[in-house]
């Protein structure tokens, strides 16, 4: 157990300090929130209608933006080999690593998601529901990004490839997470259902993705 804690602490520390920590995803999320209205137009009712959706969509992209650093660096600098030879079960090792990195870099997303929604004219209650859904979506988002990152580790300019691989897998969590905020805004009774489905997808991803990521790392070292 202490080995997993060692990995979790190391990855969180490295992600927090090096590579800009939370700055990368935060900056990307803010940029997306700023640009969307310039493209969509200032009409208040339109913006508030698309607000929750934009939050979910922008959060997804900011997780994708930092995906190649998750496992790409480890592949290159020899850490992945050493992790596989450390005797810790690869699936648990990967879960500890992704959890550490996600906490260190993605914690601002729900906060910005809530504030951003309010900036788009979404009332407080739906904005909070949207933020809660984002929080529930983070495990799925980061593990899927990790899976795509592990598959494409070490490939030059793998950003585009990771986005292409991860996009289909992000469809369910995006539908449910953005749906929670949108349903809350439109007042129909599906908001809670969407939130629970988001959490369900995240739990399923936590159960499955680590094995996929471990297999991907092993195959890329073969």
């Amino acid at each position: 157990m202490s080995a997993l804690r060692a990995i979790f602490m190391r990855e969180a520390r490295l992600a927090w300090a090096g590579g800009g920590g939370a700055a990368g995803p935060t900056a990307f999320f803010l940029a997306a929130i700023t640009l969307a209205p310039l493209a969509i137009g200032p009409a208040a009712d339109l913006l508030s209608a698309v607000g929750p959706g934009i939050m979910g969509f922008a959060a997804l992209l900011s997780v994708l933006q930092s995906a190649d650093r998750l496992f790409g660096d480890d592949h290159g600098d020899g850490t992945a080999e050493l992790y596989l030879l450390s005797g810790v079960s690869p699936a648990w090792l990967v879960l500890a690593k992704v959890t550490g990195q996600a906490l260190a870099t993605l914690w601002p997303l729900p906060v910005i998601g809530c504030l951003g929604a309010m900036m788009y004219g979404v009332p407080v209650q739906p904005a909070l529901m949207g933020a809660l859904a984002l929080l529930a979506a983070i495990p799925a988002l980061s593990l899927i990004a990790g899976f795509a990152g592990a598959l494409a580790a070490g490939i030059r300019r793998s950003g585009l490839l990771i986005a292409l691989i991860a996009t289909p897998m992000m469809v369910p969590v995006l539908i449910f997470a953005a749906g929670a905020g949108r349903s809350a805004f439109e007042g129909d009774e599906r908001a809670l259902a969407n939130l629970l489905l988001t959490a369900a997808v995240s739990l399923g991803t936590i159960a499955l993705a680590p094995f996929g990521i471990a297999a991907a790392i092993r195959s890329r070292l073969g």
Binding site: A17, D77, E81
Partner: peptide, 9 residues
């Protein structure tokens, strides 16, 4: 081949 060291560690 690689040393397994993180640059900022």
């Amino acid at each position: 081949h690689a040393d397994g060291l993180k640059p900022n560690e």
